[in-house]
Design a protein around this nucleic acid. Structure first.
Lengths: 187, 187
DNA sequence: TATAATTTTTGACCAATGTCAAAAAACGAA
DNA sequence: TTCGTTTTTTGACATTGGTCAAAAATTATA
């Protein structure tokens, strides 16, 4: 559990009391490749911290699987839309590798948010960070060419290309697998 | 100031004490069309609540002005990236109409976040809502055709088309003005 | 290993959308 | 109203990237 807390405290330091409370809530989960954390249509009631491994969120569009996001070491993972709103998820969450995760339920988190201002702050700060991340992806998606998107990925998150099948990467970038393959062959 | 608080309390109800503290911080601003709230390169130190009017955030890309977002009545408006990180903004914020705004500085907000758990919660909830909004725009940007994007806009936010020049709408959708014009003529 | 299943690459073709330039329309100020 | 500016539309053309199908390469399994 050390690792979990050292990562959490990168966002915001916590008192002993808050850490204890969190400790009581987070449950360790170990799952193997290809298992699912969530299927579309289900309400996502868990927030996960990914200690080790790789995960993807994907949804179906015209019969194709579109990768919405990847999660790697030290990412918080959930279907944010479903977790926040309580609506059924449009996305599936599936393991790309065997993973070690820490899980907390929305109910538990809600209680902690009531009890601890500092946890409320932690969550607020996490949202800030994730908002900014998403904004960057959005701007890229709107105006970069397929080649630029690939170059970006190579520079900023090369581990994605090393750990994830190409088809999943292509839809993550918003391009076809064939186009991604052709771009790659130019390098 | 009634209006401001009734909108804020749509996100999260506040105690009298928290409201008073907020009241002391929010300053009313009235500006006219085409004035700027922020120029690229400046650090955005203010968060605005837009009571009346219309605003856009835009940045420059290859000599073109790209509309990043629109703000209308009851939106919170800032350069989120710059406001959160303290980095110089890449975007400009400009009034599309005369506006009535309420302004609070980052410093003031930071103090309130320290003093009031409930304001921390308010902000956390605002981020949740804005995160989800952005996620929807992102998914659209990645996989919808120009025509679908226009139809979406017509259905979900028709006021944008009524209040904003077409060029600004086109870059907001991530398509060229000419394409938007052609699509429009089909309706 | 050998075989099957999956993933990636390649080729041919096509549709959607961008670009540039000019005309038309709408808007604003004198 | 009229003139000048800005915005929107239209036309011709180029280009990016998508689609479908098949081959090649890689990976998994018996």
């Amino acid at each position: 559990m050390h690792h979990l807390f050292s990562q959490i405290e990168n966002y915001h330091p916590l008192s002993a009391a808050a850490k204890e409370a969190l400790q009581d809530c987070f449950k360790k989960i170990t799952l193997s490749k290809n298992e699912s954390l969530l299927n579309e249509g289900q309400v996502c009631k868990q927030l996960y911290f990914l200690e080790k491994g790789a995960i993807r969120g994907f949804y179906n569009l015209d019969g194709k699987e579109i990768t919405h996001w990847f999660g790697f070491e030290n990412d918080f993972v959930t279907s944010f839309h479903s977790f926040i709103t309580g609506d059924p998820a449009v996305e599936n969450i599936q393991l790309l590798e065997g993973c070690v995760l820490w899980s907390i339920s929305k109910e538990q988190l809600t209680q902690l948010l009531d009890q601890f201002h500092e946890i409320e702050r932690l969550v607020r700060i996490v949202y800030e960070k994730y908002y900014i991340r998403l904004e960057e992806r959005f701007v890229n998606a709107q105006f970069k060419t397929a080649k630029e998107l690939y170059e970006n990925l190579l520079e900023q998150t090369p581990h994605i290309l090393e750990r994830v099948p190409l088809g999943a990467v292509a839809s993550y970038l918003g391009i076809s697998q064939e186009t991604l393959s052709r771009i790659r062959s130019q390098f």
